[in-house]
Design a protein around this nucleic acid. Structure first.
Lengths: 173, 173
DNA sequence: TAGGTGTAGAAACATATGTTTTCGGCTAAT
DNA sequence: ATTAGCCGAAAACATATGTTTCTACACCTA
């Protein structure tokens, strides 16, 4: 037969405790289903996949929602600052903001101290939309975290923050 | 004042143990830097950001690398199977495979049992390229996981697998 | 065996993102 | 004061992805 038979294609995390090679991508034993970064991408993908459908019914795309999430925290914010926080290129954010202005979700005005900078602010309508979306997102979050204890979530956050910090240092090669 | 003053904008994971609201997106206390899904996206983004630069020097784009990673596990694989595993649409994978054929990384042939299916296989050159890339990716992985114990990684995997499983059930609304 | 239904993949089409260039405004050095 | 250089944003351009449509094939049922 062409495909060599493998007894167990997916092992449980338990099996790995003493077998780092299974999740290290440079090992021949590596399994995609046990790769942290693959699982992150997978979780993130699934998380947004069905949420986007719901958001679209409210005229809000995934990138627009991301921008709103950023703006909820610090407002006003420049295009560049939003781009950095939203992990997207400035030009892309610039256009997204254009659409949001058209939809009446945000307003823009030049920074009085530096005319190059465009400050973006949520309109009352934008805040209203965000409030309407919040419970929907909350339900999706709960769905994702079903059966995951607060201790586990805290642990997850700690590890993810550590990884992010590591990767923010100077890159390889 | 418009924005109510918050003493600490970024709390450590430790603080959250008894304060779920800070990472629940439906809470007003929510902070992006404490959101699991934001952190996943952030880690994934940074992980690939500098790796892509290195890969490009070897003529391999991020999606191409992803496909190769999938093929390393099960070979041959159909376009659809690759698409699903790589979290990408079939049409996109179809075109990526075209490029890979041009580069001599893979070959395609119709499945003898079902003529609709296109089976994709890594060429020796493709496997060679993959081997060359492996240590680079391994270094990046090590960099990301620096200071993270095997126990922590195992815990991370367990949690991520749980979340992925939750999100693979029927969606909300 | 013929016809309906569903699936895999490719082609055509539309959209979104990234890259490069341009423009205006800030800043510092001469 | 003038100019060179830098930076933020937007416009122009190129690329990549997603969506829809089409074709061929498999399978099921009458």
């Amino acid at each position: 037969m062409a495909t060599s038979a493998v007894k167990k294609t997916a092992r449980t995390a338990e099996d790995l405790m003493d077998n780092r090679s299974v999740y290290d991508p440079s090992s021949p034993n590596f399994r995609l289903e046990n790769s942290p970064f693959y699982l992150m991408a997978h979780a993130d993908f699934k998380y947004h996949e069905d949420m986007d459908i719901v958001l679209h019914k409210h005229g809000v795309s995934k990138p627009i929602y991301r921008v709103m999430t950023v703006l909820r925290e610090r407002q006003p914010a420049s295009i560049g600052a939003i781009a950095e926080a939203a992990l997207t290129k400035r030009s892309t954010i610039s256009r997204i903001i254009d659409r949001m202005v058209e939809q009446g979700l945000v307003t823009t005005e030049p920074n009085p101290e530096d005319n190059r900078i465009t400050e973006v602010t949520l309109t009352p309508a934008g805040q209203q939309t965000l409030r309407k979306l919040t419970p929907i997102v909350g339900r999706q979050f709960s769905r994702a975290m079903d059966g995951v204890s607060d201790r586990d979530i805290a642990h997850l956050l700690r590890t993810l923050q550590k990884i992010s910090a590591n990767l923010s240092k100077l890159p390889i090669e």
